[in-house]
Simulated assay, not measured.
Amino acid sequence: MRCKLLFASLLLAAGFAQAAPATYKLDPNHTQVIASWNHFGYSNPIANFGNVDGTLVYDPDKVEASSVNVTLPLSGLDALVPDLTKHLQSADFFDAEKWPNATFKSTKVEKGEGNKLKVTGDLTIRDVTKPVVLDVTLNKAGQGRNGEPKVGFNATTTIKRAEFGVAKFIPNVSDEIELRITTEATVPQAEDTKK
Rank of each mutant, 00 (worst) to 15 (best):
E148K: 01
H30N: 13
A162D: 05
K116E: 13
K116I: 09
L56P: 10
A17K: 15
G165V: 00
L117Q: 01
G152H: 01
L74V: 09
D92M: 05
L138H: 06
L6H: 15
H30T: 03
T120M: 03
F153C: 01
W99I: 02
L26H: 09
K150C: 00
A13N: 09
K118C: 13
F153A: 09
D192Q: 00
T103Q: 07
P60A: 00
I181V: 09
P21V: 00
D61P: 10
G165H: 04
S36K: 00
S9R: 15
A167F: 06
A91H: 15
L56F: 07
G41Y: 10
D53T: 06
T129Y: 08
K105T: 09
T186D: 00
N172W: 13
L80F: 11
K150F: 00
P45L: 14
D78S: 10
A162F: 05
T103F: 02
P21R: 02
S90H: 07
S75W: 06
G142I: 04
L10S: 01
L10Q: 12
F94K: 09
Q89E: 07
V68K: 11
K194M: 09
S106G: 12
Q32N: 12
Q143C: 02
F104Q: 06
K62W: 06
V173A: 04
P131K: 10
N139E: 08
Y42N: 05
W37R: 13
N51H: 08
G152S: 10
N29F: 03
D122T: 13
L26Q: 10
F104K: 00
F169P: 13
A8K: 07
L77C: 08
